[in-house]
Simulated assay, not measured.
Amino acid sequence: MSTSPAAVVTGASSGIGEATARALAGAGFHVFCVARRTDRVEALADELGGTAVTCDVTDAAQVDALAAAVGDRLDLLVNNAGGAFGLEQVSAADPAVWRHMYDVNVIGTLLVTQALLPALVASGAGTLVNISSTAGHITYEGGGGYAVAKHGVTAMTGTLRLELNGLPVRVTEIAPGMVRTEEFSLNRFGGDQEAADNVYAGVDEPLVAADIADMVTWVATRPHHVNIDSMTVRPLAQAAQHKVHRST
């Protein structure tokens, strides 16, 4: 039986989730690598000496199975699974796409949190980190559905901090700005690689997944009486959602 602190990272098959799993394993955590793509999380868990769990966070039965796999004690939960889909204006938005974004970002976070919260409390020193977005704090044209979903994550995180006050569980929101990963923009643009690449065109050093993983690891390794309520993390080139320096 491992005596290492245990961490669950959802959305661990790529991007920020994968990088976070790697960073936490390097910091001494036994990591439960959680995602829908079995082949990816199994390969990652084998590499890190962790545990792979195939799970769609929007499926309550699968989330219950995740909780059973984790067991009665958990030190760290990183709710990272999420995503943005489409850039249509509100007047032209597809309600089904909005529902999907809400289900993945908000309901998925809710289900996993509900299922694993007893184990976080039982640890005596649990930490809950929700990966939100700067879109959870502001709005912008073409980002309505994603902003709605991430505002939901932000609101849920703040509510949890109030409701869990007095219990041994810290609650943190990390809100990344522009992060270049292999899939985020590609998914948003429906697989259009050129459009996805144009998001970062001329931007000197956008954030990468490892930057956010570093923030998660830092939060998780502070003395437990220190709660980092919220972190907004942007690249130097991005002063605001609409203000990005481009060299070309």
Rank of each mutant, 00 (worst) to 15 (best):
A93I: 05
A201E: 15
K243Q: 14
H245Q: 13
T51W: 06
A239R: 12
A209G: 05
P5K: 00
M178H: 09
H30M: 15
S230C: 14
G26A: 07
A23C: 09
L24C: 07
G145D: 09
A21H: 00
E42D: 10
R188W: 03
D204N: 12
H225T: 12
T248M: 10
T20Y: 04
T127C: 14
T58V: 14
V104H: 10
H225S: 13
Q193L: 13
R99E: 15
N80Y: 09
V244L: 10
R234V: 15
A96F: 10
L76I: 08
D94S: 02
L48N: 05
A45R: 00
A35G: 10
T58H: 09
P176C: 12
A67E: 03
T3W: 13
A45E: 03
Q193Y: 04
V199S: 03
D94M: 06
G28C: 06
Q114D: 15
T127Y: 00
A65T: 10
P5Q: 06
G152H: 12
A96S: 15
L44Q: 04
R180F: 07
L77D: 00
N198K: 15
G50Y: 00
L24K: 03
C33N: 05
A52S: 08
K150L: 10
Q62A: 11
E18C: 09
P206V: 02
L77M: 07
M215R: 06
D72H: 06
N198V: 13
N227A: 10
H137D: 12
L111Q: 03
M231Q: 09
P206G: 01
G28M: 11
T20E: 07
T109I: 07
V90Q: 10
H225E: 13
D59Q: 11
R170S: 02
S4A: 15
T51I: 06
G152M: 13
V244K: 07
L48P: 00
G145A: 12
V169Y: 02
A60P: 07
G83M: 13
L117S: 05
A147G: 08
R222A: 11
N130T: 15
G26P: 02
F85I: 13
N130V: 08
E141W: 08
E18T: 09
F85D: 04
V70Y: 00
V97F: 01
A45V: 05
P206Y: 05
N227L: 11
H225C: 09
G202M: 06
E18H: 12
T58W: 06
A149S: 14
M178S: 08
P168W: 04
A65F: 02
A125L: 04
V41R: 00
N130M: 11
H242R: 14
G191R: 08
A201M: 04
A149R: 00
A84W: 03
S133N: 11
L207S: 11
R161V: 02
T113L: 11
T159Q: 14
A35W: 00
